[in-house]
């Protein structure tokens, strides 16, 4: 069975129960941290996992506090968000339909793409079986390197430049 067929099989089953997990967390400052994980397919592997992490606001809200507290808060939010229990990294959960993310993924070095695909397939399998990884295999806050971030930022900057230009001329 090829990888593609395997993914199609999983995702077809998964799409009958699209919202695998849904967490809504109210933070002290009234921040919303919503995670929606759903799996959809467009022929090839295509996991649509939306994370709305109001990162900027978290930073602003706690900037007056000691840095230790900020990290602790972010760690707490990270563990609550839940995707790490499926072995996913933060950057695995971006919406792939977003043009910036799409471009960033195109630019990502191949070995990172492979690792990412592995994590996503594993997460879909776990989600399908309604189980999570054993606790010692959960992704830790410290281990989560935001590998896609610089690429997304660059793609976004380039898109903004194009938009600015189109407004001007």
């Amino acid at each position: 069975m090829t990888l593609g067929m395997y993914c199609t099989a999983i995702t077809t089953i998964a799409s009958t129960a699209p919202n695998v997990s849904e967490n809504c967390i109210d933070e002290i400052q009234g921040l919303m941290l919503v995670m929606l994980v759903s799996c959809v397919t467009y022929g090839k592997i295509k996991s649509k996992q939306i994370v709305r992490l109001e990162k900027g606001k978290v930073k602003m809200a706690v900037s007056s506090k000691a840095p230790g507290f900020s990290i602790a808060l972010r760690k707490w939010a990270y563990n609550l968000s839940g995707f790490n229990k499926y072995g996913l990294h933060h950057d695995d959960c971006y919406d792939e339909a977003d043009p910036d993310v799409k471009e960033a993924l195109r630019r990502l070095p191949e070995h990172l793409v492979d690792e990412r695909n592995f994590r996503i397939i594993r997460a879909m399998q776990l989600s399908l079986q309604k189980i999570i990884l054993p606790k010692e295999e959960w992704v830790k806050f410290e281990e989560d390197n935001k590998y896609l971030q610089p690429y997304i930022e660059e793609a976004a900057r380039e898109r903004q430049e194009k938009e600015e230009w189109n407004k001007k001329y």
């Binding site: 900057r157 380039e158 430049e161 194009k162 230009w165 001329y169």
Partner: peptide, 12 residues
Amino acid sequence: STQFGIIRNLQQ
């Protein structure tokens, strides 16, 4: 500067 910026600005 980006590829886009170089091309468009020079064209302009």
